[in-house]
C-alpha cells in the first residue's frame, strides 16, 4: 500500500492544485482585486506543481533527467496557463509550449518520428488558431465571456476528482513479481517481461486472452528484432504500420477526406433563402 508520507503529499498536490486553479480561473471572486487573486492562485498552483514533481523519478543519466524535468514542468505549467489565460492569444501561445514540451517527451521516450510529426501538425494547427483569434476574438481578453469562467467551482472539483482518481490509481501500482519467483535483476529483463504475460498466467493454448497477447508479440510489432537489437526507428514503425495496422491507415485516410468534405460543407458561405425568392432548381443534370 501507499506510504503515509506519499499519501499526504498527494493530497497536498490535489488540494493546493485545485485551490490555485480555482483562483486562477477568470471569474469574479467577491470584491477582491483580480490581479491579487490571480497571484495567490499562481503561487498555490506553482507549489502544487513542485510537489507533484517530487513524484517523478529521475532517469538514469543526468542529461536526460534534466530534459525530462524541464519538459514535464513546461508541459503541465503550460497546460495550466492555457486554460487560465484571459487573452485567447496567450492561450494559443501557452498551448504551443505544451505541444513543444510533449514532443520533447516523445523524443525522450524514443519516438523521434512522432516528435517531428506532432510539431509539424500542431504548428499548422496553432497558426490557424492564431488566425482565428486575430479574426474573431476581442483583443486583450476584454470580452466578458473571457473574464467569466462557467461554474468554476464545480468544474474544478470534478476535474481534480478525476485527477485524484488517476493519481491514486497510479501511485498504488507496484511492479508484479517475476512469474518464476525470481527477482527482476536487470532493466532489460523488465523490458521483455511483457512478452511473458501469457505464459505466466498459465493460459491454455486456445484461450482468447492468450491469442490476443500472442498477437501483441508478433515480430513486426516488436521494437527489437530476433537477435534483441533495436530496429531502425522509422523503418520499424513503418513496417508495423503497414503490416499489422494497414486497415487503420486506410481508415485514417478516409477520415481525413470525410473531414475535408465536412469542413467545406460547413464553412462555405450560402446565400440566405428569403420568402418570395424563386425556389432553387434541384441539381439533376450533373
Amino acid at each position: 500500500m501507499l506510504e503515509k508520507r506519499d499519501l499526504i503529499l498527494a493530497i497536498a498536490v490535489i488540494v493546493l492544485g485545485a485551490t490555485g486553479t480555482y483562483l486562477m480561473l477568470p471569474h469574479r471572486h467577491g470584491s477582491a482585486k483580480p490581479r491579487r487573486v490571480h497571484l495567490i492562485g499562481a503561487v498555490l498552483a506553482g507549489l502544487a506543481l513542485l510537489l507533484f514533481a517530487t513524484f517523478w523519478r529521475a532517469p538514469a543519466s543526468a542529461i536526460s533527467s534534466l530534459f525530462f524535468y524541464a519538459f514535464s514542468l513546461a508541459a503541465v505549467a503550460g497546460g495550466l496557463l492555457t486554460i487560465t489565460s484571459r487573452n485567447p492569444i496567450h492561450s494559443a501561445l501557452w498551448f504551443a509550449s505544451v505541444v513543444l514540451s510533449t514532443s520533447g517527451l516523445f523524443l525522450l521516450a524514443g519516438a523521434q518520428f512522432l516528435a517531428a510529426g506532432t510539431v509539424i501538425v500542431y504548428a499548422g494547427a496553432i497558426i490557424v488558431t492564431f488566425l482565428f483569434v486575430i479574426m474573431l476574438a476581442q483583443m486583450e481578453g476584454r470580452a466578458p465571456y473571457d473574464r467569466a469562467a462557467r461554474a468554476p467551482g464545480r468544474a474544478t472539483f470534478s476535474c481534480f476528482l478525476l485527477f485524484w482518481a488517476l493519481f491514486y490509481a497510479l501511485l498504488i501500482v507496484r511492479v508484479a513479481p517475476h512469474p518464476k519467483g525470481v527477482a527482476i535483476d536487470t532493466d532489460n529483463e523488465r523490458l521483455v517481461r511483457s512478452g511473458e504475460i501469457a505464459s505466466s498466467y498459465g493460459l491454455k493454448a486456445d484461450h482468447p486472452a492468450r491469442l490476443i497477447s500472442e498477437l501483441a508479440r508478433r515480430d513486426t510489432l516488436r521494437m527489437d528484432d530476433i537477435s534483441k537489437r533495436p530496429k531502425p526507428h522509422v523503418a520499424g514503425l513503418g513496417e508495423a504500420l503497414y503490416t499489422e495496422h494497414l486497415i487503420s491507415v486506410e481508415l485514417a485516410g478516409t477520415l481525413l477526406f470525410v473531414a475535408l468534405i465536412g469542413a467545406l460543407a460547413i464553412a462555405t458561405p450560402k446565400l440566405p433563402i428569403r420568402p418570395g425568392d424563386p425556389r432553387p432548381q434541384p441539381l439533376t443534370k450533373l
Partner: peptide
C-alpha cells in the same frame, strides 16, 4: 510512471478548460 503522471495531469487540465471556459477557441 512519470509519463503516466504527466499524461494524467494534462488530461485533467484539458477537461477543466473544456468544462469551465466559455470561449470556443479556448
Amino acid at each position: 510512471m512519470n509519463y503516466l503522471l504527466v499524461g494524467a495531469a494534462l488530461m485533467a487540465l484539458g477537461m477543466l478548460g473544456f468544462l469551465s471556459r466559455r470561449n470556443l477557441i479556448v
